[in-house]
Design a protein around this nucleic acid. Sequence first.
RNA 1: GCGGUAGUGGUGAAGUGGUUAACACACUGGUUUGUGGAUCCAGCAUGCGAGGGUUCGAUCCCCUUCUACCGCCCCA
Length: 432
Amino acid sequence: MAKATFQKPKGTADLLPEQTAQWQHIENIARLLFRDYNFKEIRTPMFENFEVFSRSAGDTSDVVTKEMYDFHDKGDRHIALRPEGTAGVVRAFVENKLYGPEFDKPYKAFYIGPMFRYERPQAGRFRQFHQIGVEAFGSESPALDVEVIAMAIDFFKTLGLENLRVAINTLGDQLSRDQYRQALIDYLRPHATELSQDSQERLDKNPLRVLDSKDPKDQKFVANAPSILDYLSDEATQHWQTVKEMLTALNIDFVIDATMVRGLDYYNDTIFEIMTVDDSLKGAATIAGGGRYSGLVKEFGGPETPGVGFGIGMERLISLLIAQNVAPTIDNTLDFYVVNIGKQTDVVATQIVQAVRSFGYAAERDYLSRSAKAQFKTADRHKSQYVITIGETELYNHVANIKNMSTGQQQTIKLADLYTDLPTIIDSEGDN
RNA sequence: GCGGUAGUGGUGAAGUGGUUAACACACUGGUUUGUGGAUCCAGCAUGCGAGGGUUCGAUCCCCUUCUACCGCCCCA
């Protein structure tokens, strides 16, 4: 490394061809599967006005208070790189009036793309990472909560993952939440000074998030804290019950985690996380998280419209696929390699590769005037099925040699035939 | 934002305050004046993340910085 003046920004990654194949595999499966559920792809900007995120994720959320990748542009606009997908989709939903009568309800959309969070990189955590997410707007049906959860699980199963744990909880509706919030404050307030510094602040701003704390000082209080499940309104209870029943009806195993809160403030009713129990991803076990939210569309100026969705972390997903040995093997094999010997053959060699490619075969040639041996080695390394050799003698006679690399058989054919009948020549190879 | 560990060629790595920085893989060439997977031979870091400092002299000591990995917080 003579002068490594340029390095990629902290927490980013270059995805090289060996890896992109893997990414494409996952994306392809997502697109195919989500289509089965009638979700359509939506693409929104990778950056938005800062307020789009601060208003939706919640002013007290960690994402907004310390992880926002934001800056002021040349027009002095306060811009933020999107830290998650929902806010932008909701903004687009409202801005494009997708709540209009001509659109399906629920309106189902999915997205695949990079997200940004300004934090210290570590296992399963990057400044630029990628999510596959879905959102469905316009129905309060618990069946939709369940469908979204089922789709995530379907996706992971299709990819071949095992040992997944689905945790669900409910945050109830506004009424339940308000009552619970008060109960929680009443419970925690007397112990306020014994809580961690962070949680003391949370107590005022967003007491539910105290439940999320991993600090041992807080944990002992969290353990005996009142449960949201005891404060659900009749309506919220009904919703919650139905979600559980439907999950059971679909044979989806789940655990109820009454202390699960989620990091974004906009959720209500059903929330869920899907994590691996695989040891390899200890610090980053959660590969998907999501839930229902009802105030967001209104917050962005649209009509009161409920939504439900999830986000899947692609980097974590890929680590898990690798850890569980279900990553697909990629095919980099060539069908043909064109060995050319001598300067004079340069033009024909180009004509030949192009002709071969025009038949739909993957083909490569040598551009470095290397020895025939070196070119064959390269062909071999690419596991090329056939090698076409063109030297000056062949050129003079208007022929080329085709060698089957697995049998070692080589035949001489006319260039004219190669250009018109290559597939036939290959097919009939064993016949004569 | 805080803490821990690390940074030598394309890769995996050894190494020492002092003339030419092991070894292996990969790659290139040759052994076979135009034909692959084997053998053997040869070549392949004026450089030890970057910038300062100590020293007669530093890849090896000190400081700063950058980056990576891991942990805390939190999350995907």
